[in-house]
């Protein structure tokens, strides 16, 4: 009797997670894919902002430095959930206001683009700080050696400062990548169908809350484990030439 209930439960769980309807597997995987695309896009956008922001904060003019300080202070002070709501409505609202004012029609911005923009702006602020710390930790003598040999600023930044900074910034940047993957879940509040939203939808329709959230947890864990593995490889490469001082 017990056995058969267990078997029924297992069978129905598998049915629920099956790829094609009435299973919800496809919905979950699509949510997972959306989450990954957004995390990658936001992280990439954040990296562009972060590199520019870090160099700007260190070497920029006074106005640029002040603007960047305002940006990183605000973004890091406000809870991400609140930021996402503000940026989401600001991003779509302001853009459409501008378009209407210029005599264009409203546009429906793709949720993916919105998600990337919103999370990218958040990522950018944190990455600016991590990368700035990474640049500051580059031994000044090595930069001086490059200057003394007549390297131009751009070449020096690209060939010397960035690679040396990369190994300093890597642990912090790896953390931010994991944050980026998890922050995609916050987009559920604006109704975007990333993994968490898809899970919620499946769970509330079928009332199998535990099954679906457990499945979502496993998927998030997979992203994290895969990331950790890849980060380890990257870190090993970025630390080439460094001696392990821990003995």
């Amino acid at each position: 009797m017990m056995m058969s209930i267990g078997a029924v439960a297992a069978a129905s769980t598998l049915d629920l997670l099956a790829y094609s309807p009435p299973g919800w597997g496809a919905t979950l995987l699509k949510g997972l894919l959306n989450s990954i695309v957004i995390a990658l896009g936001a992280y990439g956008l954040g990296l562009l902002i972060g590199i520019g922001g870090a160099f700007g904060k260190l070497y920029g003019g006074p106005v640029l430095k002040d603007l960047l300080a305002v940006y990183t202070t605000i973004v890091r002070a406000v809870p991400e959930l609140v930021l996402i709501l503000i940026l989401f409505y600001a991003f779509t609202g302001v853009l459409n206001e501008a378009l209407l004012a210029w005599g264009f029609d409203r546009v429906q911005i793709s949720p993916i683009v919105t998600g990337i923009a919103v999370l990218g702006i958040v990522q950018g602020a944190y990455q600016t700080e991590v990368l700035r710390g990474g640049i500051l930790a580059v031994p000044s003598g090595q930069i001086e050696a490059a200057r003394a040999m007549g390297m131009s600023r751009g070449l020096l930044a690209r060939r010397i400062t960035l690679p040396l900074m990369a190994s300093n910034a890597l642990p912090g940047m790896a953390n931010l990548w994991l944050n980026a993957t998890k922050d995609t879940a916050l987009l559920a509040v604006i109704g975007f169908s990333e993994l968490t939203q898809a899970t919620k939808q499946a769970a509330s329709t079928t009332k199998a809350f535990f099954t679906f959230f457990a499945a979502a947890m496993v998927l998030y864990l997979c992203i994290s484990l895969l990331s950790t593995f890849l980060i380890g490889r990257i870190e090993k490469w970025a630390r080439r030439g460094q001696r392990d001082m821990r003995g």
């Binding site: 031994p139 003598g141 090595q142 001086e144 010397i160 040396l164 080439r240 460094q242």
Partner: peptide, 12 residues
């Protein structure tokens, strides 16, 4: 050609 007290070779 400048040579420094602390060598300043690029470590990477």
């Amino acid at each position: 050609g400048m040579v420094f007290q602390n060598f300043n070779l690029w470590t990477h």
